[in-house]
Each structure stands twice: as C-alpha cells, then as structure tokens.
Design a binder for these strands. Structure first.
Lengths: 169, 169
DNA sequence: ATTTTATGTCAGTGTTGTTGACATGTTCCA
DNA sequence: TGGAACATGTCAACAACACTGACATAAAAT
C-alpha cells in the first residue's frame, strides 16, 4: 500500500468507517426517489439503469451496456424488451457493423429519464449545498467518487463520460 | 427550492449529473469487494449488511435493524437465521424489555465483519488519497454523503452513529 | 383483563441477478 | 470462398432478496 493511502487510512481513522456507512445510507435514499416514480410505470431499478445510460449516451451498443452494468445479456434483455416494447427505447442496426444494435431513447424515454434524473439531481444539489462543498470545491465530491472506482476501470468510465452529448449547455 | 440549492444546481450544472453517474460506478465497485469474500461463505449482501450493523452497534434490536435496513421482518429473518445458525451472531433477551432480542456478533462474526470492512476501508482510503480530499478537508466527503440522506432521516442516522463503541481509538 | 408491542413463521409472489445451451446473422481471416 | 469469431437473441432453470398477507406467542402497557 502506498504511503499516501496508509496515511489517509490513519488520518481518516474511524471516519473511513463512517464513510462506508454513510455511503450505504446515501445510496439507500438516492435510489429511493426514482423507485417511487418507476413503480407507477411498472418498472424497476434495472429499467432505470438501462434508460439512464441509453438516454445519456445515445447509440450505445448492447455490448457497451453490458460492460457498464456488469450483468448478463439475459438479464439485460429482459428489461430492455420491456422498454422497447413499451416505446421508451428504439434500436437501429449499426452502420459500420451491421451486427450491432444501437440503442436510442424515444421522446417518451427521454421524458421519463429526465423526470428520474431531476429528482436525483435535486438530492445531489441539496447535498452539495448542505455540505458547503458546492462553492468551496465543487469537484471534490466528484473526484472522491471517481477514486472509489476500481483503478483499472477508471479509464473506461472517463472515456464513456467524455463521450456525453452536451445538450444542456 | 431554497436559493442555495437552486444556485448549487446551476453552479454544478452537468457536474451534478456526473455525480449521479459516478455514484452508480462507485457503489458498483464498492460492493464488489465484499461480494467476493461473502461468496466463499455462501453469504450475500443482505448478510453483509446485517453483520456490519450488528458488529458496529452491538445490542441492536430487531426493530432498530429493520429501521436501518428498510426491509421487512421476513426478509431480515431469512438472513439473520443463517447468521445465527452458523454462529456469527447471537441473541440475548432484553433486560429492561424482555420482548426484545438484542443482537451481538460472536468472535467469528466480528472477525468476518472485520475482513469485510477492511477491504472497503482500503478502497475509501485510496479514494481519499487519490482525490486529495484526505489532507485538505477529510470531512467534506462525509458531509456530502450525509447531505444525500433524506433530511427527516438525518437525525436518526446521527443518533445511531453517535452510539458507536469506540474500540479502535 | 384486554390491548398493544416485539418478534417469529408460513406461504406465495415479483424483480433481478445467475448458468448453460443453442440459434441467427455478420464480419473477419486464412 | 469457407470456416472461425463475434454480436446479439432466446429458452429454461435456478438463486438471492425483496414483497404481501396471515397468523402465533410472549411480554408490556393500559
């Protein structure tokens, strides 16, 4: 273990353990908001995750989605079929590689994804405001969470997020 | 919405949305570590959560555990029976109220809980070190996550965490 | 003495994950 | 060109973990 980490572990002490617990509580409430909305559509968290990533990264392939979600194609297909069947997501055959299915949100899909991200954004904004991280160092929360990602996976996440369509700017 | 929050939402802009996504990736890898250990014991995440909270808050009652985990007593009982049956947790009848079952970890339970918290602490320590939050403002990550908790629930979480046994100090 | 509370348990169900096997169409390569 | 590799879809069985509803017991509170 590098010195910085050992040092951080000592410095943090029990607060590191507190962080573990707070992450549980934070995540518990974080997913609670969308759950209530999704229930009205007969959808679950699995549907939410698919909808979210397809909305944010239009043209995502099945393989890419599988790599992001870390589930099997059978699990993905179940929820994807629901979302496509009910008109929230559409597929297009890939142009360069016709084996691929590129995924896109329909207008209804984008609308629902927007509703879902809105409630979560609100919670995040409140957390930033309450913790006074927002003004002082708005990126520190981001960099902390990024640091929680498995090191070998960070490049992939960075690559994905860099690909995002900047529409709200 | 209070001005500070609206302001934070604007300031954060897309970074708020990035935080949502990073929280997904962070949590995905965060629970991945313990999962590998638990699988060797034939346990799952539900067992982990129970073991963790009983280890950290010895003497917890069933009702308190239910309130923390936000699951039904039937769900809790299934995993709790496993943990008791295999000697990781024991029950004692409450002294002031003999209806209550106070939960405690056995030596084996504490050992396993320790193994689990160790791998997670390592990840948190690395995240703090990598994000350089550790030295600058070690509490900002904590306060951010605390801010993610439903406001009405924060007092309960604070009360719980204040109750912790300070043994490692 | 009755009601309420804390807990335990049985039975059935739903979502979301898994494995294994197999099918189709597309691309790539020798 | 023909076969291997790849991207995807699908069927079936199964496991973990959540849910609801109903009912039981012992202890506490009124």
């Amino acid at each position: 273990m590098p010195d910085v980490e050992a040092d951080a572990l000592r410095t943090a002490g029990d607060s590191g353990d507190d962080l573990i617990e707070l992450l549980f509580f934070a995540y518990r409430d974080f997913v609670g908001d969308p759950d209530r909305i999704l229930a009205q559509y007969g959808f679950g968290r699995a549907h939410h995750r698919v909808l979210h990533f397809v909305d944010r990264y239009p043209g995502l392939t099945i393989a890419e989605l599988l790599d992001i979600l870390r589930i099997t194609k059978q699990s993905l297909n179940r929820v994807l079929k629901d979302l496509i069947g009910q008109g929230y997501i559409t597929q297009k055959t890939g142009t360069s590689d016709r084996r691929q299915r590129l995924l896109f949100c329909t207008a209804a899909g984008t609308a629902l994804a927007g509703d879902l991200i809105r409630v979560q954004s609100r919670r995040v904004a409140r957390a930033l405001a309450d913790s006074e991280i927002g003004r002082e160092n708005p990126l520190s929360a981001e960099s902390f969470l990024f640091g929680m990602i498995e090191p070998e996976e960070r490049a992939a996440v960075r690559r994905l997020m860099a690909r995002r369509v900047r529409s709200a700017a």
